[in-house]
Design a protein around this nucleic acid. Sequence first.
DNA 1: GTCTATACCTTGATAGAC
DNA 2: GTCTATCAAGGTATAGAC
Lengths: 197, 197
Amino acid sequence: MGVSMGTKGSANRQRIVEAADHLFYSRGYNQTSFSDISDETGIPRGNFYYYFKTKEDILSAVVDSRLDIFRQVLDDCEAKSSDPRQRLLAFAETPVHNQQQVIEYGCPIGTLSSELCKEQAHEISSGRLTAVFDLIRDWCIEQFRALGFENRAHDLSMDLLAKLQGITLMANIYHDRKFLSRATEDVQAWLQQVTTN
Amino acid sequence: MGVSMGTKGSANRQRIVEAADHLFYSRGYNQTSFSDISDETGIPRGNFYYYFKTKEDILSAVVDSRLDIFRQVLDDCEAKSSDPRQRLLAFAETPVHNQQQVIEYGCPIGTLSSELCKEQAHEISSGRLTAVFDLIRDWCIEQFRALGFENRAHDLSMDLLAKLQGITLMANIYHDRKFLSRATEDVQAWLQQVTTN
DNA sequence: GTCTATACCTTGATAGAC
DNA sequence: GTCTATCAAGGTATAGAC
């Protein structure tokens, strides 16, 4: 790479993050080894330490990657409509939009956060643990505020996230597509109802 | 132990299961080692294999233990009232009743199931994975049926579990006691509303 | 920058003395 | 039944050649 893309832009680094992202999602962070990432990328284990100091540094890069992905998701929701209500309804569709993965592995944010919440050795800053949730929650707060819910915006956002996390978790555990669809419609009906006052 | 309590009733076996239960909850199943259980019980690592063939056998025993615990929880809810509505309202209180642990480690059933849903080597039967959820869901179905909701009993039970899982997960990740309390009241209000028709 | 070899530790599991 | 010693495998991380 003679071209200047900085250390963070290295092609190999990128491939490592992508493989780790996929593996952390499908197997969990703790159950993913350097060998797994090596197998998926073809890059030798020992080589990772040129790009990352520790496994947690890879995790941190994966979180950054997921932040980018969800920023894109939220941008798309904004692009679909100028009406905050429609934007929220569009966002609520995210789990069904990714239903294949959700049924199989759960929510990429929820399951990872839940795993990292457990008491263990890793010293990941609590800020990074909720980073993606914070991003989404703040975006939801913006939408609710634009609808005139100054005081309740925060609570409503937490409620929305809790509802989506709940149906995602149950759909995952029971591998139930129909429940995911039906329950999502209920969440959207709740959104309609709560925002029309 | 000259007294006949059977292999399953051994005092040491009991202590292993109790320690494993606590550790699987606070650290997660995969992040709990035999050494951890040994440290907590004082029983040497190699001794576990007299009571259990594999680590998964310990997991299975822990699931049995949690089944017993939740059977007791449901019995208590039944004992509190003969009105199925009141019983469901009492059950919805469970997370706040154990809020200390819920805030710190999440739901003992939800987090474990979520962890075990991930793709890995362990060959735990999918039946045991949802065993505790099945127990609770079936109990909820009974209550809704008793209230006259023959057709919707299953859906309503899934909805209730999803709501409780969602608020528990968010309360855990954000370590937010107030949210847990407020959102639980909302779930109870929903229960009241949906059962008064 | 890339790769191999390997150090060092912990894991789940076994063997065998008592 | 209880305990110690140990196994083989796999984990993260490091050193150093190219």
